[in-house]
Amino acid sequence: MTTRSTRSTGRNGSARTGFTALALSGALALSLSACGTSDSDDQKAGSGSTHVIKTAMGDVKVPVAPKRVVVLDTAELDSAITLGVKPVGATHVEAASGFPGYLPKDKVSGIKDVGEMLNPNMEAIAALKPDVILTSKIRHGAKYEQLKQIAPTVMTENTGYPWKENFQVHADALGKRAEAKKAVAAYDAHAEQVTTAVGGPAEAKATEVNVVRFVEGADIRVYGEKTYIATLLKDVGLGRPAIAAKAKDGFSYDVSPEKIDLADADVIFRATYGDPKKSKQTQTVGSSLWKNMDAVKKGDVHTVDDELWIQGIGYTAANRILDEMQKALAR
């Protein structure tokens, strides 16, 4: 673990929950190569009613400007909201009804809940008469034949780590490529702002950061390099401890409470999914191993919202997370 230079106050020496969002800096001009159709393809398609999107399930013909969109996971919901599209329907995650709390209430009010994410209600989806459905193969590949009978269904291969590429597919499907470029440019400028606030590229790289998630019914996860949250850490230029590179398939290195000290770093962001006791959070953070970790002793452990940091997956979530990183890490 590297040693950082001493940082000035703005740090309260204890874990904090629920940071206040900071203002985004202005967008930078950006040229971005995209998935799916090209800008010229979009212009040609403008004179017709449909265009073709390249998806994980092959080419799919969708309306140029769909009006009734249904999304079946949090990443697709974040993409739609980021691009200024309010879906007519969306799934919720597991038993908890409602949509992610980090999304503006006015942007999700009126969206029809079409069931739990892994088991969407096909009748409810069909009743909304969508003109396009957005999801991923990893989530709903087995339901593709049913879904495409309802409406053209655009599936990315996976979710999470390839979120930036997936966002471009969503933008193509929604006819929002110009809005996508603005969103990407604003995010890039925001990440650069956080790097500066941390003390610049060298200081950011010298600050090793881990993200630890307590999960009900599973071991404790130390997130690896091929995850959504890892891409944000990389965009800010933050360093990662060696354990992050040992994550299985790049996703997570799982530990028991008795090995939690392996998760030590300069800074730890921790989230909890499910019941704190059943997720082993309570026993872990009360243990001597946890209390003797460098990050804990220095007050550099920050409790964050699991729904935002882990489940959000998109540019709207990413900008909120960058705000919280800046609050926690600023010199």
Rank of each mutant, 00 (worst) to 15 (best):
T3I: 10
T3L: 09
T6Q: 12
T6A: 12
R7D: 11
N12E: 14
G13T: 07
A15S: 15
A21M: 13
A21K: 14
L24T: 12
A27L: 08
L30Y: 11
S33V: 15
C35P: 06
C35V: 14
G36V: 10
D39I: 09
S40W: 14
Q43H: 13
K44H: 11
G46H: 12
S47T: 15
H51G: 04
I53M: 09
T55W: 08
M57H: 12
G58M: 11
G58Y: 05
D59P: 11
D59R: 11
V60R: 10
K61G: 01
P63I: 11
A65D: 12
A65N: 15
V70R: 07
T74C: 10
T74I: 11
T74M: 12
A80V: 02
I81V: 14
G84S: 05
P87Y: 03
V88C: 09
V88L: 11
G89E: 08
G89V: 12
T91I: 03
A95I: 10
A95M: 07
A96H: 05
S97C: 03
G101P: 00
V108F: 03
K112N: 04
G115F: 04
L118W: 06
A124I: 01
A124W: 00
A124K: 09
A127N: 06
K129M: 05
P130Y: 02
D131E: 07
I133S: 00
L134R: 01
T135A: 04
K137C: 02
K143Q: 15
K148D: 02
I150D: 02
P152Q: 08
M155F: 07
T156N: 07
T156P: 03
E157Y: 08
K164E: 07
N166G: 09
N166K: 05
Q168N: 06
V169S: 03
H170D: 14
K176L: 04
A178C: 01
K181T: 14
A189V: 06
E192T: 10
E192H: 03
V194S: 02
T196H: 13
G200Y: 07
G200M: 06
P201N: 04
P201D: 05
A202P: 01
A204H: 06
A204T: 12
E208Y: 05
N210C: 04
V212I: 15
R213I: 08
E216D: 13
G217T: 03
I220M: 09
I220L: 09
Y223P: 09
Y223A: 10
T227S: 09
A230S: 15
K234Y: 07
V236C: 02
L238F: 06
R240I: 11
A244N: 13
A247P: 10
Y253R: 11
Y253I: 04
V255R: 04
S256F: 10
S256L: 13
S256M: 13
D261M: 01
A263T: 10
A263K: 08
V267Y: 06
V267C: 08
R270K: 14
R270Q: 13
K277W: 00
G286Q: 06
S287Q: 05
S288H: 05
W290M: 14
N292A: 04
N292F: 02
M293W: 05
M293C: 05
V296Y: 04
D300Q: 12
D300I: 01
V301C: 06
V301D: 09
D305W: 09
L308C: 01
W309K: 01
G312C: 01
G312A: 02
I313W: 02
A318W: 00
R320A: 13
K327G: 07
A330D: 05
R331H: 11
